Amino acid sequence: MIDSTAFLTDVGKVRSHNEDNGGIFVSPVGTLVVVADGMGGHSAGDIASKIATEVLESEWNKMSPPLKAIDAETFLLDSFKRANEAIITYAQQHPECEGMGTTAIAAVCTEEYTAIAHVGDSRAYVYNGIKISQQTEDHSLVAELVRSGQITEEEAEHHPRKNVVLRALGTDPDVSIDVFILQSDLINVLIICSDGLSNKLKASEVQAEIERGVKLSEVAESLIAQANDRGGEDNITIALVRFNEEISESL
């Protein structure tokens, strides 16, 4: 049972405008969570992330119950591909937006399962009531260097090319999309965020905030405030979904 949700995005302390987008969209089918981190500078990044969010929401509104896990995977893959095509088409029609793109992560949350798809370095974490664990692998240069053993995780923290993303919507007609299924009864809180948050806070710090026992909206506000306190160089976006009533939202 989905108990509560929260979504919050912030421009940060340095950027002049917010290129992040997303939202939480509830329907009879379930709950769709989207976080998109645009790139391309000027107004292009926020256009790309807005297109991705709007395509996902539009496709979601067409779905009707019941939706099996395999159907949710298909929905996510198809919607990501449509969003990718829409961003590429827009850029072709608007030369000033050439080269724009966006990371994208989306989750279809139901009582039985949670389907997650992602492209880029926005992340999904799961808190199971005991510990938090990262569920996605970053599609970034430094993550690939860490996986191949060329640099350590500590070196990745301050790598000069930390912001280089290897996959994004809008940059390649044949984008590769990761998609997987989790059991919802093993999730206490699902956390989805842009790298503006994950670059500033450790997973253990996110867990500590969740375990304070406050409303999810307060958790989101506190985490974004902490990211801003540590520099806030990037836009910051977080979405939270609590799957049970273990921690009361009446607190």
Rank of each mutant, 00 (worst) to 15 (best):
A36L: 01
E221C: 09
F80M: 10
S79T: 13
Q93V: 05
V14Y: 12
S58V: 02
Q135I: 08
A44L: 04
T9A: 13
L169G: 05
K81T: 14
E137S: 13
L8V: 04
T89M: 10
V219H: 10
N163K: 10
E155T: 06
K200P: 00
I224C: 06
I132V: 08
E205H: 04
M39W: 01
N61S: 14
E137C: 05
D178N: 07
S64G: 13
G99K: 00
D71M: 12
V34K: 03
E155C: 01
V11P: 01
V241W: 04
G149R: 03
E137N: 11
I181Y: 08
L67Y: 04
L67V: 14
Q226W: 03
K162E: 07
H94E: 04
G40S: 10
T74V: 09
S222G: 13
D138K: 01
S250P: 03
G12H: 08
R15K: 11
H17D: 14
Q134I: 09
P65A: 05
G170R: 10
K62E: 15
E59C: 11
T74F: 05
L190M: 13
G38F: 01
F243W: 11
L166T: 06
T74N: 12
H94W: 03
I238E: 10
I210E: 07
S140L: 00
F243K: 14
I210F: 02
L223V: 06
R82I: 10
E155H: 02
A83G: 15
D3W: 12
H139M: 07
L77F: 04
G101R: 01
G38M: 07
E85W: 01
P95S: 07
P65Q: 03
R230V: 08
T114V: 15
V175L: 14
S43N: 12
V108E: 07
V11D: 00
V126F: 03
G129F: 06
A6W: 03
A69F: 00
L197T: 03
Q135V: 12
S16Q: 15
K13D: 11
G129S: 09
N21S: 14
S79A: 15
S140V: 02
L77R: 12
D229L: 14
A203R: 04
T136F: 09
V11A: 10
I2V: 15
I51G: 01
E221V: 07
S27L: 11
C109M: 10
S248K: 12
H17L: 12
A115H: 00
E98T: 15
G232D: 03
I191G: 05
Q134F: 02
D121N: 05
I191K: 10
F75P: 05
E218P: 04
S204C: 08
P95M: 07
P66N: 04
V35P: 06
R15N: 07
V35Y: 04
L169I: 15
V175M: 15
D185H: 14
Q183K: 13
E205A: 10
G40Q: 00
R242W: 07
N18Q: 04
I116V: 13
R15F: 00
Q93A: 14
K62I: 14
S133I: 12
K202W: 09
E155F: 04
E96G: 09
E144W: 02
T110M: 03
F25T: 11
F25A: 10
L182Y: 13
D138I: 03
S176C: 12
G22Y: 06
N199R: 09
V175Y: 13
E221K: 15
E59Y: 02
A36D: 10
K68M: 15
N163Y: 01
